[in-house]
Design a protein around this nucleic acid. Structure first.
Lengths: 188, 188
DNA sequence: GTCTATAGTAAGATAGAC
DNA sequence: GTCTATCTTACTATAGAC
């Protein structure tokens, strides 16, 4: 077959996602995205006529799908609260490569109205995650306020540990965070 | 006096700092920096011959000075541990405008070798802050490992609460973080 | 579907007048 | 010290061949 093979959507989005997670939206130039994708710029525009903004939005959409399937669904299972949180910790550890990869929810955050679409996607993702964690804690017998407070703090710890790990050049804060998350969330 | 008045270094750096904190390094174009500073691009280059990278480095240096004077020094005072942490909380609340302004240590973090200078400044700032907090906890009677662990977690909570506040469009996570920081750090 | 080539624009940076 | 005007480069995006 002389025809050049199509690079699969899933693999393409994953490579683009790596770039956005590493350098953020503005620093992700088409040159960098093109090299990471293994496609020339014009080919990227063929796949994403909306340009960089569409790439980022599809990357975000993919991340939300991942969140739903690998985080929210397991959290909403009928397993024990301990097991549901343990499952989340394992998925999170893999997704962030043990603290070496940043979070899109941080890297694509922007105060610009230009990228307003991202803002609501990011807010929704945070709220869905916190809501699901909160439901687990309510199942575990905590009152609503405590559940919500601890769920939000878990996400804060996760995001903060990624920031500090990145800034200090060590994954220890992230590993500490995950190692203590279940115990802290369910502590009486 | 027909001669145009010089804009003071301190005011200039503060305006530039606001831009870097809001949008990060790459999105801080000279056009944006120029407008925020109230100086034309050529004037910025007169004050910062090294261009944008020098601006960011001087903004970082200014932030480290602020950290030393308003955070590290009070933490190293001879006051009670409770009072030292309360003082830090007040300073932090003001510096981050109650959670509305982001942290340079997050916004200027970059995996690029280009901006390597930032990386060591950021790492040093994190380490100095955690070290000072750790010393307070040792003064409060905690063992070295516990002190270090809790100090690091305090910084993680701070950074994470800023990320989540920004992402969710509310300052509540940041306010929660500060409201509970002293109690959590000193809990027996 | 991918490519080479190129248009058009905004970026970082400099020269020289006032 | 600040300004207008300009240079060069890099960026986003498009046209058209294969």
């Amino acid at each position: 077959m002389a025809r050049p093979a199509k690079i699969e959507d899933s693999a393409l989005l994953e490579r683009l996602s790596d770039v956005f997670r590493e350098v953020g939206y503005e620093a992700a130039s088409l040159a960098v995205l093109s090299e990471a994708a293994g496609l020339k710029k014009a080919s990227l525009y063929h796949r994403f006529p909306g340009g960089k903004e569409q790439m980022a939005r599809e990357v975000m959409a993919r991340a939300e799908t991942w969140l739903s399937e690998h985080i929210l669904a397991p959290l909403q299972s009928s397993a024990l609260p301990e097991a549901r949180i343990q499952g989340m910790v394992r998925s999170v550890d893999a997704f962030y490569s043990g603290g070496r990869q940043a979070c899109l929810l941080n890297m694509l955050s922007s105060p610009h109205a230009d990228h307003g679409p991202f803002a609501s996607l990011i807010r929704n993702a945070f709220e869905a995650w916190i809501g699901a964690l909160s439901a687990v804690l309510i199942d575990a017998g905590f009152d609503e306020d405590t559940a919500r407070f601890r769920a939000e703090r878990a996400i804060v710890l996760l995001q903060g540990s990624l920031v500090v790990s990145r800034g200090m050049g060590t994954t220890r804060p992230f590993r500490n965070c995950l190692a203590n998350l279940e115990r802290e969330m369910l502590a009486r």
